[in-house]
Simulated assay, not measured.
Amino acid sequence: MTPDQSPLGKASAYADHYDAGLLYPLPRSTKREEVGITGRLPFMGADLWTAYELSWLNPRGKPQVAIAQFIVPCESTHIVESKSFKLYLNSFNNTVVASAEEVQTRLRDDLSEAIWRGGPVQARVGVHLVMPDAFDAQPIHELDGLLLDRLDAECSQYEPDPSLLTSATDEQPVTETLVSHLLKSNCLVTGQPDWGSVQISYTGPQIDQEGLLQYIVSFRNHNEFHEQCVERIYMDVLRQCQPTKLSVYARYTRRGGLDINPWRSSHPRQPPPNVRGARQ
């Protein structure tokens, strides 16, 4: 399966009855090989998805709605192409389901099979449904860290340029968290803009902040899926700046009722909370 064969950029009939076959998995390996990832992964992490347009019918035919939150392990062999994910979610619209728990089970089973397409399920997708009585408790919070966007940096590179990344390898190591809201890339297939914020936490030689901001801006005309952009950033920072610990987390604005928020870390820790930013 390849991105150009997916539903992206094509007219699609929106099925409104449950159909797990609508999910379109794409192998992670192709893009990982581009950034030098082969064999054992140099990171751990997950892709945090939020679906704001989930609805089904209860046994009396009354529509139900929920927000769905997903945790997709980065170790999976495949990602699910986002438009196919939306088509799949819409297939619940006129489907009678006995309970929210059954919806949750179907989502978990179908997505877990898709991300390990062709192989045994080694780690299942985490699924949490937020029901309407809890909507008001959903917080909005920006990524914590020192804001790089305060810098009056001159930017002229709009394709990823790792040479912009440097660090003070002759000085004492530091631990810091840096944030930018200026991440923008484009869909690999359609070229539509993807807007995001990124948080980079590390321990090691101090990273030149202006160069890091210029590097983040350099993704502006780059065509790649969200997960692939974050892994590219992780690998470039790891190679160029030589941190001993590194975590990269991006929160992208939603499209088609879905937001995708990849997180990669060099060391074991709990995934960051799936809390949306103001632009999401």
Rank of each mutant, 00 (worst) to 15 (best):
R239F: 08
L129W: 08
D110E: 07
R251A: 01
I233L: 12
T105E: 15
L87T: 12
E142K: 04
S180T: 12
R279N: 06
A114T: 04
H267R: 15
A66C: 12
Q192S: 13
N221C: 12
A123E: 10
E159I: 11
Q64R: 13
W56S: 08
L22F: 07
V230E: 02
L143W: 03
C187N: 04
Q206L: 06
F225D: 04
A168I: 11
A123I: 06
E102M: 04
L178W: 06
G45H: 05
V130P: 04
A278F: 08
I79V: 14
L129K: 06
P27K: 07
L188A: 11
L183F: 09
T77A: 14
K62A: 11
V237W: 02
S112C: 08
T2V: 14
D109G: 01
T38G: 10
A46E: 13
T50L: 08
G119H: 11
V248M: 09
G256S: 02
T203A: 07
S163P: 01
P243T: 10
G277R: 14
H222L: 14
W49M: 06
S167A: 15
F85E: 00
S201F: 00
R276L: 13
A68C: 01
Q69R: 13
D110K: 01
P262G: 01
T30E: 15
D194N: 13
Y88T: 10
I260W: 04
D194Y: 05
D259K: 00
S91M: 05
A278D: 08
L22I: 08
F43Q: 02
A168L: 15
P162C: 03
R60F: 10
N274E: 08
P205G: 12
E113Q: 13
A134G: 04
G39H: 05
P273Y: 11
V275N: 01
L164Q: 03
V97H: 02
T166P: 00
R106I: 09
R251C: 05
G257M: 11
